[in-house]
Design a protein around this nucleic acid. Structure first.
Length: 300
DNA sequence: AAAATGGACAACCGCGGTACA
DNA sequence: ATGTACCGCGGTTGTCCATTT
């Protein structure tokens, strides 16, 4: 036989929202075996999910280091700025916001920021659809953009030739003083606890969600699960899950929260290139206008 | 009060690059 | 060298909930 063995049977694979029980199973499994090798996760953990779904659940919601909830002003500005620089490369943008997932940023952009920027666009009368590339301001921004692209290409070339290997500067990390002083990252304990709070609000829906799973009539088991989850949530008693997750937080995933930081182009560099050339003192409005321009131009 | 509509977000889908046998 | 599956990414869809009609 050529190639790899088949990943997972497509029959009986559950889809849709994850239940806390599934989350616990997945987290427990990863605590024991570590992340990765997703192909074997469904079979070995007993989850009726495809490997892809398990990986997605882990990377977007369960892994430690994820902050959820409202984006603060700084994060918002970062996203606007980075989107203008990088386009819809959400994974690249997320690498500058270590606590946020690309999916989260993408959703936030699509649901909040796009509209917000459009509003500002209308208010400032800077509507590109009407005055496409005609204003001197836009033209200047175009030039700046081109300049930036040239610089980026240069930088990439330098890095490829190992002439210059600057260390990434994480603005997000330098601004952590505003929140979570002791621990910049939310632990996966907290992530699951938060999910459970949500779950507790509408527990009656849980079984309906299960389409192909085997837990349609497991009231006793479920309530037991809830008991342990509650104690897990409250931190008042040391449950199995507590041990599992606290252990995970403390040792297993220190290295795992955001991969690929080493390979990215330093944000400060990009920022410097951009503003050094055309606009030495660029204010926030400039950034917003610039990002709007980027949206309509679609350079990337 | 009920139906319709829209917003927010979690999850899925499909694709391209890569690793493996 | 080649075929197959994995992985990561961005786009899209589905579902829940709040608001409006």
């Amino acid at each position: 036989m050529m190639g790899r063995p088949p990943c997972c049977e497509k029959i009986g694979v559950k889809k849709g929202p994850w239940t806390p029980e599934e989350d616990i199973i997945l987290v427990s499994y990863i605590q024991e075996h570590g992340p990765g090798n997703w192909r074997s996760v469904p079979n070995r953990s007993g989850l009726m999910r495809c490997s892809k779904s398990c990986r997605l659940r882990w990377t977007n919601y369960l892994r430690p280091g994820i902050k959820r909830g409202n984006f603060n002003d700084h994060e918002e500005k970062m996203i606007i700025h980075l989107q203008a620089l990088l386009g819809n490369r959400w994974a690249a943008i997320a690498s500058y916001l270590p606590q946020r997932t690309d999916n989260d940023i993408k959703n936030y952009w699509n649901t909040h920021l796009r509209k917000k920027l459009k509003k500002v666009q209308i208010q400032t009368g800077n509507d590109n659809e009407k005055e496409e590339n005609t204003s001197p301001q836009v033209k200047g921004q175009w030039e700046r953009r081109l300049q930036t692209d040239i610089h980026m290409a240069k930088q990439a070339l330098c890095e490829a030739l190992s002439l210059n290997t600057p260390k990434p500067i994480l603005l997000a990390e330098t601004n952590l003083t505003t929140e979570n002083k002791t621990s910049p990252y939310a632990s996966n304990t907290e992530n699951i606890a938060r999910l459970l709070e949500k779950w507790m609000k509408k527990p009656e829906n849980s079984d309906e969600v299960v389409t192909t799973g085997s837990s349609s009539s497991e009231g006793g088991q479920k309530s037991q699960a809830f008991d342990s989850l509650l104690s897990f949530n409250s931190f008042n008693s040391v449950s199995v899950e507590d041990n599992i997750n606290l252990t995970m937080d403390s040792c297993l995933f220190q290295y795992e929260s955001k991969p690929k930081l080493d390979s990215q182009v330093p944000f400060m560099f990009l920022e410097k290139w951009l503003f050094d050339d055309g606009a030495p003192q660029c204010n926030e409005e400039d950034l917003i206008n610039m990002s709007m321009e980027e949206n309509s131009v679609g350079l990337f």
